[in-house]
Amino acid sequence: MIESATASPRERRRVETTRTLVSLTRRATAAHGLAGFTIEEICAQAGVSRRTFFNYFASKEDAVLGVPLGADSADEDEFFVAMRPRTPAGQLSHNLVDDFATLIAARWAKLDIDRASAAELMAAAEREPQLLPHMLERGRLDQQKDIALIERREQLQPGDPRAAVLVQIIVHLGHLALPLSLDPDDPEPFPAALQRLVATASALFSSHDRHRLPNPHDPESAA
């Protein structure tokens, strides 16, 4: 939901309406729980119709999480795949980790999380336990998609554990980077924080060749 300097008036209105609906839904959830208010009440406060709300969000839960309809990263995903250099199938490309971290950072940027919006989300989550399983399920599905995306990019066999391990590591490093980006005294841009943590993780695994991780399907590389 980051506004571009070249965004059209229509795109800017969509960004602003999205922010308004997210904020209102989070505050209403924090005050009353998901069942304690109607979508019509949110729409009345935002000055939009119920139909408009569902043009933006599939549900109250998605509005609280700040995940609008059409927020997929198809273009970024295809660019991520296209960035793979000529590398033998099944051998991980040397830029895979950095490229995947960049993809995750681009997705976080679309969520438009600042200290105020993060505080609203946390207050809503504390008030409404139902949000937790919704968040976990969305995260699980997103990770499954990313595993398949990495398998496609690197031409790995389905179920290759390296794809799942990479996704888990980068996702959790993203969770560590987020509070650093929201630090009220010394905030660090999320992409920079994530890249720094990725470099730290790489140093921890420095006993391995950083340009070619062991292939579990290749006994010689695993030796």
Rank of each mutant, 00 (worst) to 15 (best):
E3G: 02
S4R: 12
A5N: 13
A5F: 14
T6Y: 06
P9W: 11
P9R: 09
R10V: 13
R10I: 11
R12Q: 12
R14G: 03
T20S: 13
V22T: 13
V22F: 02
T25P: 04
T25I: 06
A30Q: 08
A30E: 05
A31P: 02
H32R: 15
F37T: 02
F37I: 04
E40K: 14
E41Y: 00
A44L: 04
A46H: 01
R50D: 10
R51F: 05
T52I: 09
T52S: 11
T52F: 09
F53W: 00
A58D: 13
S59F: 15
K60H: 05
E61I: 07
E61R: 06
E61V: 10
V64G: 00
V64S: 01
L65Q: 09
G66Q: 02
V67N: 07
V67D: 02
L69R: 15
L69C: 13
G70S: 10
A71Y: 09
D72A: 13
S73V: 12
E78A: 14
F79H: 13
F79P: 00
F80T: 05
A82Y: 01
R84V: 14
P88F: 00
P88A: 04
A89S: 13
G90S: 07
L92Y: 00
L92A: 06
H94Q: 08
N95Q: 09
V97I: 15
D98F: 04
D99Q: 10
F100M: 04
F100A: 01
A101G: 01
T102W: 08
T102G: 07
T102C: 07
I104M: 11
A105V: 07
A106G: 05
A106P: 00
W108V: 11
W108N: 04
A109G: 05
K110F: 00
D112R: 06
I113T: 13
A118W: 14
A118M: 15
A118E: 15
L121C: 06
A123F: 06
A125F: 12
A125Q: 10
E128T: 08
E128C: 12
P129V: 11
P129E: 10
L131D: 02
L132M: 15
P133K: 12
M135L: 15
E137T: 15
G139P: 07
L141M: 06
D142I: 10
Q144R: 14
A148P: 05
L149K: 10
L149H: 07
I150E: 02
R152D: 08
R153D: 03
R153Y: 01
P158H: 03
G159W: 15
A164F: 02
V165E: 08
Q168D: 04
I169Q: 03
I170F: 04
V171E: 14
L173T: 00
G174I: 02
G174T: 02
A177H: 04
S181N: 12
P184G: 08
P184E: 10
D186V: 09
P187R: 15
E188K: 13
P189A: 14
P191V: 07
L194H: 07
L194A: 05
Q195P: 01
Q195R: 14
R196I: 03
L197G: 01
V198H: 00
T200C: 06
A201H: 08
F205Y: 13
S207M: 08
H208T: 09
D209R: 08
R212C: 08
R212N: 11
L213K: 12
P214K: 11
N215P: 03
S221A: 08
A223F: 11
